[in-house]
Measured scan of single mutants.
Amino acid sequence: HFTSQQLQELEATFQRNRYPDMSTREEIAVWTNLTEARVRVWFKNRRAKWR
């Protein structure tokens, strides 16, 4: 589960860029205190939901 702060950060990034690269995902991981893998999976799932 994600905190509302984490989701806000993830959503804001998603609005700007639906396909963040590795370095962007790592930055998000640092800001949100999540692993890069969790961030990558979140984006994958979010893109699926967005379609």
Rank of each mutant, 00 (worst) to 15 (best):
K49T: 09
A37C: 08
A48Y: 09
R51Q: 09
K49V: 12
L10M: 05
K49L: 12
F2M: 10
S4F: 12
V30E: 13
N17Y: 06
T32W: 07
K44A: 10
A48C: 10
R16C: 14
Q5D: 10
H1T: 10
W42Q: 03
E11I: 05
L34S: 13
R47S: 02
A29L: 02
R46V: 03
W42Y: 03
E27N: 10
I28P: 00
E9G: 08
S4C: 15
R25K: 00
A48M: 09
V30R: 15
E27I: 11
E26G: 06
Q8H: 11
D21A: 06
A48G: 06
W31A: 15
D21K: 06
E36P: 07
M22C: 09
W42P: 00
L7R: 07
R18I: 05
R25C: 04
Q15K: 10
R16D: 06
D21R: 06
R51K: 11
A12V: 08
M22R: 15
H1D: 11
D21S: 09
E11S: 01
Y19A: 04
A48K: 14
Y19G: 01
F43M: 03
N45G: 07
T3N: 08
A37V: 12
R16G: 07
W31E: 12
T13C: 15
L10E: 00
R40L: 07
Q5T: 10
N33S: 08
E9F: 15
V41N: 13
T32G: 04
A37N: 10
Q15P: 04
R51N: 08
T24K: 09
R46D: 02
K49E: 13
M22P: 06
W42K: 00
P20F: 04
L7I: 10
E9I: 15
M22N: 06
S4P: 14
R51L: 12
R40Y: 07
L34W: 05
F14R: 04
E26N: 11
F43P: 00
T24L: 11
N45W: 15
R51F: 12
R40V: 04
A29Q: 01
A12D: 09
K44V: 11
E26R: 14
I28Q: 01
V41Q: 14
N33L: 06
Y19Q: 05
Q8K: 13
E9C: 15
L10S: 00
R38H: 11
E11V: 04
R25D: 02
N17G: 05
Q15I: 08
F2P: 05
L7Q: 08
Q8C: 14
M22G: 06
L10H: 03
N33V: 05
R40H: 07
L7H: 07
E36Q: 05
N17W: 07
N33W: 05
A48P: 01
K44I: 14
Q8A: 13
M22Y: 14
Q8Y: 10
V39K: 00
K49H: 10
L10V: 00
H1M: 10
Q5P: 06
K49D: 09
N45P: 00
H1E: 12
K44F: 09
K49C: 09
M22E: 08
A29G: 06
R40G: 05
V41M: 14
M22Q: 12
R16H: 11
V30Y: 13
K49I: 14
F14N: 03
S23R: 14
P20R: 01
E27Q: 14
F43S: 00
S23P: 10
W31C: 07
F2R: 03
R16M: 09
E26P: 03
Q6E: 04
L34N: 06
I28W: 02
R16Q: 10
R47C: 03
L34P: 00
D21Q: 05
Y19I: 04
V41Y: 12
F43N: 00
E26C: 14
E36A: 06
Q15A: 11
E36G: 03
R40W: 05
A29H: 01
E9T: 15
F14H: 03
Q15D: 07
F14P: 01
W31V: 15
T35C: 06
D21Y: 03
A29I: 04
T3Y: 03
T32V: 11
K49A: 12
E36V: 05
T13E: 14
V30P: 00
T3E: 04
K44L: 08
A29M: 03
V41E: 15
W42I: 00
E11G: 00
E11K: 03
F14E: 03
R46N: 02
T35I: 04
F14A: 01
E11H: 02
W42S: 00
V39D: 02
K49M: 10
Y19T: 05
R25L: 11
E9A: 15
V30S: 13
T13A: 15
E36Y: 01
R16K: 13
W31Y: 14
T35Q: 04
P20N: 02
Q5S: 10
W42R: 00
A29F: 02
E11Y: 04
L7W: 11
N17A: 05
A12H: 09
R40M: 07
W42M: 00
A48I: 09
R47I: 06
R38I: 15
S23M: 11
T3K: 04
Q5W: 15
R47Y: 04
N45M: 14
Q15V: 07
F43W: 03
R51A: 10
R25P: 01
Q6L: 05
N45Y: 13
L10G: 00
F43Y: 07
T24C: 13
S4T: 13
K49Y: 09
T32Y: 08
Y19K: 04
T32D: 01
E11Q: 03
N33R: 07
T24R: 08
P20G: 02
R46H: 05
R38W: 12
R40P: 00
A37K: 12
L7V: 09
T35F: 03
R51C: 11
A12P: 01
P20L: 02
T35S: 10
H1G: 12
A12G: 06
P20V: 02
I28C: 02
L7E: 09
A48E: 11
L34H: 03
R18F: 06
S23A: 14
E9H: 14
N45E: 14
N17F: 06
A12E: 11
N45H: 13
A48F: 07
A12L: 11
I28F: 01
Q8N: 10
E27W: 11
A48S: 08
Q6P: 01
V30H: 12
R16P: 02
E11A: 00
V30A: 14
T24G: 05
R47T: 03
E27C: 14
R46S: 02
W50N: 07
R51I: 10
F2V: 07
I28T: 02
E36M: 05
N17M: 08
W42C: 03
E36H: 04
Q8W: 12
T13W: 15
N33Y: 06
T24E: 14
E11W: 05
Y19N: 07
F2H: 04
Q5N: 08
R47V: 06
Q6K: 04
L10Q: 00
P20S: 03
V30F: 13
R18T: 05
F2Q: 02
W50E: 15
V41S: 12
I28H: 00
A29E: 01
Q6A: 06
S4I: 13
R18N: 06
L10R: 00
F43A: 00
D21L: 04
A29R: 01
N45Q: 13
T3D: 06
S23K: 15
N17E: 06
N33E: 08
